[in-house]
């Protein structure tokens, strides 16, 4: 029973990891760009929620309405002003600039908020659970996060396949040069892509703050989880990313069941094994 429970919790945890990963996947898909500071932006969102809650006293979920547009704006402006300058044939500039951001963000957060661990109180949601039988129950919060992940991914999918901007983003992913001949301004398109990815990062950050303790140094680990979910699922496939998140969550839960110190290591090892066995990911994008 313990094992079934662990797997169940792992699946739900995978929803959070999919939320971490969706933004990373989207930015790589459109711009061939890996944001090393991705995890730190999730942590910024968490602190953003902390500020909103501290200032207004509302339930953390309401903070989403401030954090998500705030992150989208930050993402758009940051992409237009800074990151677009780094994009080109050479992979070094975007990697190293965002790696620099990662260190800068962690240390600024450290100066402003100290190294103390924080957590947002979500009230009744934290303890409420739905009993399945005597020994297994599903927490309301993990369920809410998992459902949000489903909604976000379905929403992104609909956006990509049903709207004209979504179509342009897919075309940009295929061929950045030719899409300019369609009247699309790459600099703007990249700004939109980062804005959307950052909005998802905002959601992920609020949930991170509600679900676990966080401090300025936890960003890189979130980047690695997100990265692993993307690679396990296969590049350019958002439902695959969800599957990748779930596999990672389950691997961690099983690891934790063996030994609490083994949780994160088990996730990384599962990722490396899958990387060796299926280097293209479990669900590589089908070329149409």
């Amino acid at each position: 029973m313990d094992w079934i429970n662990a797997i169940l919790q792992g699946i739900l945890l995978g929803g959070l990891y999919a939320l971490f990963a969706a933004g990373l996947s989207l930015m790589f898909g459109v711009m061939r760009f890996v944001n090393v500071a991705h995890g730190d932006f999730i942590v910024i969102s968490a602190y953003g929620a902390l500020i909103v809650v501290a200032a207004t006293g509302v339930h953390p979920l309401w903070a989403t309405f401030v954090v998500v547009p705030g992150m989208a704006l930050l993402g758009y402006v940051g992409q237009r002003i800074l990151l677009n300058r780094t994009l080109g044939e050479d992979i070094l500039p975007p990697l190293l600039v965002t790696f620099g951001f990662s260190i800068i963000i962690q240390n600024v957060l450290l100066e402003v908020f100290s190294a103390d661990s924080q957590k947002l109180q979500a009230g009744w949601m934290e303890t409420a659970s739905i009993p399945i039988n005597q020994s297994i129950s599903i927490g309301v919060m993990p369920l809410l996060i998992f459902a949000s992940a489903l909604i976000v991914i379905a929403g992104l999918q609909a956006f990509f396949y049903k709207t004209s901007l979504g179509r342009v983003l897919r075309a940009t992913s295929d061929d950045q040069d030719t899409v300019r001949l369609m009247g699309a301004n790459n600099a703007k398109i990249f700004g939109y892509a980062t804005a959307i990815a950052s909005a998802v990062v905002g959601i992920a950050g609020v949930y991170l703050a509600m679900r676990t303790n966080f401090d300025p140094s936890v960003g890189p680990a979130r980047l690695l989880f997100a990265f692993e979910a993307v690679i396990i699922g296969g590049l350019g496939n958002l439902w695959g990313t969800l599957a990748g998140g779930i596999i990672l969550g389950v691997a961690q839960a099983i690891g934790a069941q063996i030994d609490p110190g083994f949780q994160i290591l088990a996730g990384h090892l599962a990722f490396l094994i899958l990387l060796v066995v299926k280097p293209q990911g479990l669900f590589p994008k089908m070329k149409g």
């Binding site: 179509r167 897919r170 061929d175 030719t178 369609m182 009247g183 070329k287 149409g288």
Partner: peptide, 18 residues
């Protein structure tokens, strides 16, 4: 230089983007 992940109709529609 067609976009491989887009259908024929989507390729045409994207021409109307700007």
């Amino acid at each position: 230089k067609l976009f491989p992940s887009l259908t024929v109709e989507e390729n045409l529609l994207i021409g109307a983007y700007g």
